[in-house]
Each structure stands twice: as C-alpha cells, then as structure tokens.
C-alpha cells in the first residue's frame, strides 16, 4: 500500500494547496510499491527546492542534499552499494540550472538511477524566479516583462546525453505517469521521467493560471501524445504554440553502471 511509505507524523506536507509535487509523489510511491521495492533497501535523494522536500515525507533512508548535487550524491550511494534501489526527486532549477553538469554526466555514465524531475517552470520555494525551463514570454519575479531566454528541453537533453529510459508526462496524467515511473524503475541504467506540473502559487498566479484546475486544463489540452503526433503530423509541421509532446521518448539498453552483480 502506498500509505505505508509515508511518514504520517510529518503530514500534511509544506506544499501549497494544489501543488503538483504531492501528486507526483503519490505516483512515484505507487510505482515503487508496484515494483516490489522494500522500504529498507530503497533510498530517496533530492537536492534543494520544493520538489526536494518530498523524500522527507517518505519512510525510507533519504538524503536531502545541496542544490543541484542530488545526482552526484546518488552516484556515490549507488556505486558504493549497488544493492540499494535509488530514486532521485529533483526540480527544474536543480537539474537544468545548477546541476546541469551533474545531470548530463549521470546520463552519460548511465548509472542505474531513476530520476523524477518535477518541472514547474519556476523556482517555487524562493518565491517564483524564472528558471531555465520558463517558457518564452511567461512572467516570473525575475522576468517581469516575460522570459526572453529559450528554455531547456530536458527530455532531448537526456536522450542526447545517453540515458536508457526517458519519458515525459504531466501531473494530470497520473496513471501514465505511474506506468512510466514503473518502467523507469525496471529499466537498468539512467531513467529520467520529466513531469510537467502546476505551481499555482508562484507560476500560476502570474501567468493566468490562478486556480490549480486552470493549469490542469492547460496540461490536458496542450500535452500531445508523442506516438499520435508522429503518426498524424504532416512533414515539416510544427507543434502548436505552447504544446509539448508527452510519452516515452527512449528505451534502450546502453551499457550501464552501478547494477548489483547477481553473483
């Protein structure tokens, strides 16, 4: 049962009302439970930010580390003791900005980790500053006239850097997300599951998604299934504005590190 994995004495958690991170935590715990992991041989790691508070609510060994470094810590844990199952919660600021180097190198090494990136397009905990994934034109406290930088595509980055399993879903697609995390856990090597999620307090408030439901509607209407798009798109056709592909992007068997020997 998913409830068994929670530290009930610490709930309710610090997330704002309608925050997508809680949903993602549910889906990951559901997947971890389905994968048959034990609480005593699973470790959750995280960096800094809203997303990174999640391991503190899970009743396992957990490391809540420094900003952006979660993947480097996870490398140490997994390489030193490959029998542990290691899951990393991270945010877009963590993985795309300050921890970008650790991210591409963890993908390159293809260490057996499952990384769930809660991408809310903003630095939520510090009050809504723009992040490397803030879409062009969106408002934040550090992009008051609209973001002008081109955002990172984390999925493309992970595929190019060599991860074994890469998928993208949203906090609206809970069953597909659970399935993707489960696939990530079962795939040896580096798995990245990017989850687009809502931040009604910092992102929504400034970008006309004041209610959590509004952003859920946006996620539902702008998420384009990758397989469907590949089937139906005319040659050269581009995705409609603000839309993004969801689905499984890569599943392959490149050489991996940190897998426990069967012997």
């Amino acid at each position: 049962m998913r409830e068994d994995w929670l530290r009930n004495d610490r709930l309710p958690h610090i997330y704002c009302a309608g925050c997508g991170n809680g949903t993602i935590m549910n889906c990951v715990l559901e997947a971890v439970d389905k994968a048959g992991y034990e609480r005593d041989n699973t470790v959750f790691l995280s960096g800094i930010g809203c997303s990174s508070r999640a391991p503190g609510y899970i009743e396992t060994d957990s490391l809540h580390t420094t900003h952006g470094r979660a993947l480097a810590f996870a490398t140490g844990v997994k390489m030193a003791k490959p029998s542990l199952n290691v899951v990393v919660f991270t945010g877009d600021g963590d993985i795309a900005a300050i921890g970008g180097n650790h991210f591409i190198h963890a993908c390159r090494r293809n260490i057996d980790l499952t990384v769930v990136c809660m991408n809310n397009h903003i630095y939520g905990m510090t009050g809504g500053q723009g992040s490397p994934t803030t879409p062009i034109g969106k408002t934040s406290t550090t992009t008051p006239y609209g973001a002008v930088e081109v955002p990172f595509d984390l999925v493309d980055l992970a595929v190019a850097a060599g991860a074994n399993y890469v998928a993208r879903w949203t906090s609206y697609h809970v069953t597909q997300l659970t399935e993707a995390v489960l696939n990530g856990l079962n795939t040896p090597g580096f798995s990245l599951i990017e989850v687009r999620c809502q931040c009604p307090t910092s992102y929504g408030r400034r970008n006309k998604f004041r209610e959590p439901k509004d952003y859920m509607d946006f996620l539902r209407s702008h998420a384009v299934l990758k397989e469907k798009w590949e089937r139906t798109a005319k040659p050269g056709e581009e995705l409609p504005a603000e839309s993004f592909l969801v689905g499984e992007f890569v599943r392959r068997a490149r050489p991996v590190m940190g897998v426990a020997d069967e012997t």
């Binding site: 790691l45 060994d61 470094r69 480097a72 140490g76 844990v77 030193a80 003791k81």
Partner: peptide, 19 residues
C-alpha cells in the same frame, strides 16, 4: 567525477552506505 563538487557529493553519498 565531473568536478570536485561532485566528488565531494559522491563520497558523502558513499559514506552513508557505510563505505
């Protein structure tokens, strides 16, 4: 590792596994 920040992070992670 990719840099010294990561080296230090990795040994802390490893130390928590008892290494």
């Amino acid at each position: 590792m990719e840099d010294e920040i990561a080296s230090m992070a990795a040994i802390i992670g490893a130390a928590w596994t008892g290494a």
